[in-house]
């Protein structure tokens, strides 16, 4: 009998994740690592501060001044990550089911598409979409403009689609064959078996790696700055060039890194906790 897939052993994090009554892991506020980074950030700011002369405003004041703009840019990053994840998951799910289809041509085609987009670098796909997708499409009688960030989001959705496809295929194939046999013996059709028995069991297995994929996608969104999307990374560059002060470089980049860290670290912890909880097989 095939054993279910087991996830890599969850790394023992220094502080255990508290689980609330609803069974949802409580999001940790701070964490030893976040504190260490905050300390590092403060120290670098202090050093930079010591280097400024009396005339220009302090580092912290400058960073606070630009925070609203940075927040706007970061919001675009998050929006792109949500959209790309949604699109990628939808298509990837279909593609994954195609990979386990009984029709050989469909299987081969789905597998080829999955492997192609899994093996392509994300930045190259982004360039491809930005440069080769039209900047406007004609739907019916109206012309819809495709803004840069939309094309970039689509470019990000493609590797997500391929990864979700592999996730789905792996999860379905990890369900013991006895489940298929039992369903078949009860006269379930293949479609019903998938819908009622196999896929519900797959959802649990797929969730931690799927969340992991979201984290990877989120930290990949700054790539869109290279192809001209005005998100947090671009804005940071703009801010730094407009201020023109070298002592701002380290704090501003660390600040931007902190934004992402504060967003992604709780997701990583929640993922690890879910992995532990679901690994009861």
């Amino acid at each position: 009998m095939k054993t279910p897939a087991s996830f890599p052993a969850a790394r023992a994090a220094p502080s255990a994740l508290r689980v609330t009554l609803a069974g949802v892991p409580a999001l940790p506020i701070g964490g030893r690592h976040g504190i260490m980074l905050a300390v590092f950030l403060a120290m670098s700011m202090a050093v930079a501060q010591a280097q400024t002369g009396p005339a220009p405003p302090s580092i912290i004041a400058t960073m606070l001044k630009w925070t609203p703009l940075l927040a706007q840019g970061f919001a675009l990053n998050i929006a792109m990550s949500f959209l790309a994840m949604a699109i990628g998951t939808a298509f990837g799910f279909a593609l994954g089911l195609g990979q386990i289809s009984l029709l050989a041509p469909l299987r081969a085609g789905a597998r080829a598409i999955t492997q192609f987009f899994r093996n392509s670098p994300w930045l190259v796909l982004l360039f491809y979409c930005m440069l080769l997708l039209p900047f406007e499409v004609r739907i019916g009688n109206s012309i819809v403009a495709l803004p840069g960030w939309a094309k970039a989001t689509f470019g990000l959705a493609l590797p997500v689609m391929a990864n979700v496809s592999e996730l789905v295929r792996g999860a379905v194939q990890s369900i013991p064959s006895g489940q298929w046999e039992a369903a078949e013996s009860l006269a379930f059709t293949r479609l019903k078996t998938l819908r009622m028995i196999i896929l519900p069991q797959c959802i649990k297995r797929m969730t931690p790696p799927w969340m992991n994929l979201y984290a990877i996608l989120t930290v990949a969104t700054p790539l869109t700055s290279v192809v001209g999307v005005s998100e947090a990374m671009t804005l940071t560059g703009d801010i730094l060039s407009s201020e023109g002060r070298t002592e701002l470089l380290v704090p501003m980049y660390l600040y931007l890194l902190m934004w992402f860290f504060v967003y992604c670290y709780p997701i990583a912890r929640a993922t690890a906790a879910l992995e532990r909880r679901f690994a009861v097989y």
Binding site: G178, E181, S185, Q201
Partner: peptide, 12 residues
């Protein structure tokens, strides 16, 4: 009807 050695109940 068939009953299996590994029961094969639907765990969910």
């Amino acid at each position: 009807g068939m009953v299996f050695q590994q029961y094969n109940l639907f765990p969910h």
